[in-house]
Design a protein around this nucleic acid. Sequence first.
DNA 1: CAACTAGGTCACGAGGTCAC
DNA 2: GTGACCTCGTGACCTAGTTG
Lengths: 133, 133
Amino acid sequence: MPPGVVPFPFGKCRVCRDRATGVHYGVATCEGCKGFFKRSTLRGDKYKCFFGGQCDISPQNRNRCKSCRFRRCLESGMAIDGKFKVQKRNKVWVHTIMSPLLAMPKGLLVSSRSICMSVIFSSPERISSELLS
Amino acid sequence: MPPGVVPFPFGKCRVCRDRATGVHYGVATCEGCKGFFKRSTLRGDKYKCFFGGQCDISPQNRNRCKSCRFRRCLESGMAIDGKFKVQKRNKVWVHTIMSPLLAMPKGLLVSSRSICMSVIFSSPERISSELLS
DNA sequence: CAACTAGGTCACGAGGTCAC
DNA sequence: GTGACCTCGTGACCTAGTTG
């Protein structure tokens, strides 16, 4: 950072630790997590983590697990209340599931198309040994 | 090229010198080398050069030696992970590669949603025994 | 007015498709 | 298997609207 330049005031994104660009949906986040939360909410996406539900969310890997990224959005306090900033920080918005994929078998419940795909084309024996170990 | 037409901005493919169609996996490449690198990486293919390991890779002969084509992919900096720079609106910024599949266990490949559905519903018992807890 | 953000925009590229 | 073409999620930027 050049001398004399004031550091960005919002600090790091509370979801992925990227540079926060402002307070979005009640939480200081980057543009990416802001847009991700907005899209996920509007579409009512339901995500499934395939890696234990404890994925680290960083600027480099935040697109690898939508489930944990969205979980971190909720945990950090992001909420859509329809209004501006007042009293949003401590509210947790409850995600409503609207996905037609809910009719799918348990464990394959995903709205991330690519993750859904990845389960299928693999040889079943390899999946079972590596996913279920 | 007709008069007044701006030359294609990405230049030549850094692997085979064909026309680059964009920045793929961190490097300006053509569609062919992009797809080749993707398939090779996802499948974990191992190639062997039978001609000394110094094959020239051109648009005309790029399919003759997979080993040297893949070697050139790696040498040019293609990577299925990490960050790369993108030129947009006269500004340069860092864009994170979107690769949800990369977090999946090794050997997992991809298909389509329709195939996903059909497989799941055509043999739910097999899927459930191997994938579902 | 300035300061701020929700929501929209859209270029970009990852990943999928399918004739060959 | 290849690669030209496609779909669609992403996120930097834009703008309209709110607030003090």
